[in-house]
Write a protein that binds this DNA or RNA. Structure first.
Lengths: 162, 162
DNA sequence: CTTGACTTTGGAGTCGGCTCAAAGGTTTAC
DNA sequence: GTAAACCTTTGAGCCGACTCCAAAGTCAAG
């Protein structure tokens, strides 16, 4: 309470950008901040806790929509707990479905890889058996745009504030 | 030539929309289709296989950029095979890394779920212990990688062709 | 008093992967 | 011969979670 924070201070305390804080406010993930006479947003420690909670939950793979459902509602302990449990169960189901798919895909990749290695060891294939399996068409290539997914990951890993 | 397909036929055979097929063609994921005199696209079985491969790879979380790299280039047999092998190896590594992350995430969810169930069984908590923990854990590194892919897959499962 | 680092707003842009609309041309079924 | 159901193109819109921008206001240090 000794410490009221501006957006920028709150943001850097939580390791996000000021834009992100305002964005969360628009989405009702953070309550509308009180203001100075000049209109600057003012935040308290509890806003910081809440913001950290959001980030933490997000790092668990929850979407902002999911998180909004987790944020302090009006119910008391047990009801709250049931709500959380239901969300966790549904996330777990999603996760398991996806894990199953990924393991199947892994088996497929491994099988393809084995075929490749065999063809390379035998040195007698006139074309990659994997590609033969996948498709018979040859097709000319445009320029290989650098993967955006990769760039996004890199951006995400290093520091928040530009 | 027994089985030439129009874009709509190809699309529904693969369970995607015609728009998606044309979109893939724009992205060079499918070779430019041959045309009838009237300009209609014509596809073959091998296009269908290729399209199915794309969907299969995609359902496991590979981006279209990733997939493009797995698709046939113009080099001859062994070189081609080496390229495919190298890509398969790197995808396999990625996949394993991701599987590891997901399993860790899963353990965390399961642990939280257990706490919820216990609190509900004991009926003595005044506050959900999971919410308490999340709000008091230290926020390390946010990595919301899977949310998006996860939701995309879910959308993909039910919402086909409206 | 001026500089420069903050703040405000609304609105636009980004990325991947579609999805839809508009305005027209073609093919097929009756 | 005509209507339905295809097909063509270009180009815009959608989602989630930001991110950036411009133009203007505010605040603290020197």
């Amino acid at each position: 309470m000794s410490s009221d924070l501006t957006v920028g201070q709150l943001a850097s305390a939580a390791g996000v950008s000021a834009d992100t804080v305002r964005y969360y406010e628009r989405l009702n993930l953070l309550p509308p901040a009180s203001r100075t006479r000049a209109g600057y947003r003012l935040y308290t420690e509890s806003d910081l806790e809440r913001l950290r909670f959001i980030k933490q939950a997000q790092s668990l793979g929850l979407s902002l929509d999911d998180i909004r459902m987790l944020l302090p509602g009006s119910e008391a302990g047990l009801a709250e707990c049931r709500r959380v449990r239901d969300l966790l169960i549904s996330k777990l189901e999603e996760l398991d479905a996806r894990l199953g798919e990924m393991r199947a895909f892994r088996r497929r990749i491994v099988a393809y890889l084995k075929e490749c290695e065999q063809a390379l060891a035998g040195k007698r294939e006139d074309r990659c058996p994997v590609l033969f399996e996948i498709s018979h068409s040859t097709h000319s290539e445009a320029k290989p745009t650098k993967s955006r997914a990769l760039r996004n990951r890199i951006d995400a890993k290093k520091g928040r504030k530009p």
